[in-house]
Amino acid sequence: MRYLKHIILLLFILSSCSEPFEFDVEEGAFNVIDAKVSTAEGGSYVRIIALNDSTETLRNDFTVQVISDRGEVVDFSYDRSSGNYLPVDPTFRGDNGVRYRFSAFNNDGILFDSSYDSIPDSFPIDINIADTLVLKLSTVLDSFILTEAVVSTAIVPFTSDVFYSRLKLVYAYQDYWMSDSTIVEEIDNFILFNNFQVDIPSSGAIIPLGIRVNEPWLFFDATQPAAFCNSVILFNCPNPCCGNPCCHFEDRWVMDFRLVQESLSPATYDYWENVEKLRNNDGLIFDTFPFPVEGNVECTGCDNQTLGLFQAVSESVSSVQRELRVLVQ
């Protein structure tokens, strides 16, 4: 009887589950365009992918150009190491206030063409990560486990009333006992991504911005422009109690935080905002209604649907390093 009870319970519990699902859709083939013109040197690229089910094939048979509304044509060539088309002139940088579009064609008569996207006239001149950086650590198995960090950030814009931006926070840690500050591991899981639209006061005050990982909400408080906003970065390790290496830090390591800020056009901002809405759905109460995100690239001569985005951005980077040993104090 006792075993029967357990069997019944087990059957009940096992009855609810989530598992990967594959749609029986028509032989799905898509063209994916990932193209960017940036104000940062080396930040511009074009990537053309043939996506068939889950198989990606890089396309290298295209002639790729980025054309500005001033008539300038920037040629791109295929870079075998990265799989991207890169500017033939490696020093190429996009200009603020200029509109760009992207074009790629091949001998099969396929032509990808985007609409114009403009690099905003104005964008933040500085990004600060505050000196205050607190890491909460606990000791398990004689090593530290980083569970969360509190980061203060601020963007200081100047004259614009509204700007659109997205942030990417990259974490890395270095073993400073090793030579040349070798990066032990870049933690991909900790890539932070957020979009936000901020109404800037005409005074150009400091706008505190909070940053959250894996959250659909953005936190900033424009009513207190002089204050910094403490943001909590959660380290979502799959199972920190099971000794997953990504969660373990030695006290001799250095944390490197790099905040990448991109100023966007409203259209590009909308694209990323829609992407973030979908990515942040988690089946709970604040989910958004799912929908296909439409990009700005069209194809002539294609049999397949074209996905992706051509974006023109203004980029700023700021970084800060902190030693964990210090932080523990």
């Binding site: 749609f23 859709v25 799905g28 898509f30 994916v32 990932d34 960017k36 992918i49 996506l51 089910d53 889950s54 890539i191 991504f193 992407v275 979908l278 990515r279 209604f289 799912p290 929908f291 296909p292 995100v293 990009g295 996905l307 992706g308 985005l309 974006q311």
Partner: peptide, 24 residues
């Protein structure tokens, strides 16, 4: 339902591509 029929990457971000409204 509107279903995620594929996933692709732009700028290092995985993007789900959902079908048109209730097409699956």
């Amino acid at each position: 339902i509107s279903a995620p029929i594929t996933v692709f990457e732009v700028d290092g971000i995985s993007i789900p591509y959902f079908s048109e409204r209730n097409s699956e």
